[in-house]
Simulated scan of single mutants.
Amino acid sequence: MKSKSMLLTATVAMAFAGAAQAVDYQIETVAEGLEFPWSLAFLPDGGMLVTERPGRLRHINAQGELQDAAIEGVPEAFVSGQAGLFEVALDPDYANNKRIFLSYACGTLEANHTCLSSATFSEAGLQDVDEIFRVQPAKTGSAHYGGRVAFLPDNTLLLTLGDGFDYREEAQKTSSHIGSIVRLNRDGSVPEDNPFAGGGDALPELYSIGHRNVQAIVYDAQNDRVLAHEHGPRGGDELNLIEPGNNYGWPKITFGVDYNGSTISPYTSLPGLEQPMLQWTPSIAPSGMTLYRGEQFPAWKDSLMISTLAARNVRRVELDGNEVMAQETLFDELGSRFRDVRTGPDGALYLLTDAAAGQVLRVVPGAVSAQ
């Protein structure tokens, strides 16, 4: 894929375990003029699909050219505030079935949901569009939808959700999807071994509860674990190890306070509620996340790369098992809000800028070798 222009080159040095590592990189523009791009997926032919929050799905072809026309057949999204079209994710068997998944807000301002649909993709548009999941109950307002998707090796998927901002007490209820992560079969049916399946009034799709607004989720096949992060209020953004049936505490426990400075909970821990692997106060507003295992940046291998909105950078988080060892701040020289970060099949790092004239950026090694 050809880049259109080079923005800058930089060298970042950070000490880890007593040794200085210098990483030289350059940032290239792949595509620009996207309206609040939200999610990125790589096609087998070298192209990409990009969602725009106002409800459009865009195609960047294998030559790196953003197609002028949006892809036809995308389900209608409710677009207002934080609501709109969110994730695009390719079925793990996409090479055979051409199936994609789209998450989006659906409904009206007075009654809306996070929805998930599947469809088959071609350049002519989407076909066989099928809504496979809709959050219950409906809510009013246009905030905190979650919307990220991760695939598990047992042919199921995880969909992250939010608490709707004004519905935070719902996050502690197993009779509500609001403020949870759900697990579905890829046709939308419920896996029989879900932790809340068969639990009386509990909704069977639930996988974990007690979340505020889960903005990224990654399945780490090498370590067979699920990692996710979520927005706190004013402070208390969290990185969590997600395990089935667990309660992550919101709003009973939090490291943050409400936006007016008032106390949400006096507790940062309580029995039976999970503690985060890492929390950020003040808030960084984490958005996307990728576990970097590409070949272009050996010094970053096995690191979590977490894009941020409020902090306007990418946080590299180094783990030892489930323990956070160090953090590094990257790309703050751009001054951009970053909505998503992905590892490309070419081993480069890809970024989406959150702006009315948003960009797809590619990070590749610079001309100077790392020292």
Rank of each mutant, 00 (worst) to 15 (best):
T9E: 15
L239F: 03
L102P: 00
L8I: 09
S303K: 05
L319G: 11
S208R: 14
L157A: 02
N194L: 10
Y350K: 01
R99T: 14
L184Q: 08
R58H: 10
T268Y: 03
L161M: 15
F133K: 07
E35W: 03
L273T: 09
G344C: 00
I132W: 03
D93H: 08
S118V: 04
L330T: 02
T114R: 06
W280M: 10
E274M: 11
K2Q: 13
A221S: 14
P191N: 02
I306C: 00
A41P: 09
V317N: 01
P204D: 05
E110S: 15
G344A: 07
L109H: 07
K2I: 07
G198T: 05
E110T: 13
W38H: 04
D237E: 10
D154E: 14
G245S: 12
G64R: 04
A357L: 12
P191I: 05
V226M: 11
G64W: 13
A202W: 04
W38V: 09
R293C: 00
K139F: 09
S80P: 00
E230W: 10
D130Q: 15
T343F: 00
E169G: 00
A20P: 00
M277G: 06
I253W: 10
Q21W: 02
R134M: 10
T11D: 13
A143H: 08
G199T: 03
D220E: 13
G164F: 07
T343Y: 00
H211R: 14
V324N: 14
F151A: 06
F16E: 14
